[in-house]
Write a protein that binds this DNA or RNA. Structure first.
Lengths: 198, 198
DNA sequence: GAGGTTTTTTAGTGACCGATACAAAAGAGG
DNA sequence: CCTCTTTTGTATCGGTCACTAAAAAACCTC
């Protein structure tokens, strides 16, 4: 589609950086959720007009897809820990704590874009975009757990997503990081129980 | 304002039951969230025209307030258990399980209206309506716990709301009741830990 | 019946939604 | 210079948003 390289093509050069636009859009979607962000608002924040937005990204939904991917690569980078070697229990708890930090680090963009960005969203395509990332995330947790306890990998992965859902929702509701850390410690008891004391 | 009694007043009689309208509106708000439900859709579901809706309820937000109150009095009736006498741990877990049942009982209206009905909602007034109910709920849990363990009442009440948030969000994401029950059992380990073995 | 009161219906308000038609503008290559 | 290509800004598309003005309709009391 669009060549990301700076190879000078014919035609009038683009006056803005599409990647920077994705980052700005991500921030907006994260703060307000998919439906609550309008195309006009997106364009104004990026510093362009709506036609430039459609020419560069295709549609609001496609821009959201780029934003979700950017979110996963920045705010959600710590989930890569699930792929690394190491004890499951400690890794999972550490990831939950990182999620709490990410979801409370900025007062204007709380919670998780992937978990709550399409809540009550009317666009099935946008919902599917976040649902796919959630499914990938659950699978990462499941396979990590399966290395130690394949018998409980599904149940423990479900519980991991369960706690993750609580973290994002609570962060959005204004629960501060310190309390989230306490909640994670308590929820970790359940994780330790099913994993047989990590 | 409007006399709920059937005392025959002057003027053309109302052709619909306002309470039944609230129930229908509640169902719609529960299924889709505040922002995703339009006034035209509400009116059509109730079986009236928009002007009748405004004459009877005042505004979309006020109708939502009535709907939330109706929800609390029907779907959320089991929260009254928090006011009853009894051991805190068993009561809290039972309430969490009831919440899971309520949030998964109907495939078309999942989760909790109070916890997730105004997620990503652009109307601050509507958000405040659900936030107030959530605060009341947390206070009920806190005072129940305080009867046994005043020292940990705040932390345990926070954790209770944390788990409740997970239940509603997970139910919306499609997690079936059986898995939610497993998750609650695991989360209950943390509750038992902070309450000192319920 | 007439007058008063309230709800009904029809029709429409301005504002915003996502998405576009169109032509001027700005580059490359000839 | 001219042509080709792509992006730009302007101005708008039809549709939906929450909400309402206005008048007909349906009850009351007299």
């Amino acid at each position: 589609m669009t060549d990301t390289k700076e190879a000078k093509r014919a035609g009038r050069p683009r006056a803005f950086d599409p990647d920077a636009g994705v980052a700005a859009a991500m921030r907006l979607f994260w703060e307000k959720g998919y439906d609550a962000v309008g195309v006009a608002e997106l364009a104004q924040t990026i510093g362009i007009n709506p036609p430039s937005l459609y020419a560069a990204y295709g549609s609001k939904r496609e821009l959201f897809g780029r934003a979700v991917a950017h979110y996963a690569g920045t705010q959600g980078r710590f989930f890569a820990r699930l792929d690394a070697e190491g004890p499951a229990f400690e890794t999972l708890v550490a990831v939950l704590e990182e999620a709490a930090r990410s979801g409370t680090g900025d007062a204007t963009a709380r919670g998780c874009l992937v978990l709550d960005g399409t809540r009550n969203c009317t666009d099935p395509g946008a919902r599917a975009l976040t649902a796919e990332v959630r499914a990938d995330l659950r699978e990462k947790a499941r396979s990590l757990i399966a290395r130690e306890r394949p018998d409980v990998a599904d149940s423990a992965a479900d519980y991991f997503m369960f706690v993750l859902t609580a973290i994002s929702g609570s962060a959005i509701d204004g629960v501060p990081l310190e309390r989230l850390m306490q909640d994670i410690a308590l929820a970790g008891r359940g994780l330790g129980a099913i994993l047989g004391r990590g």
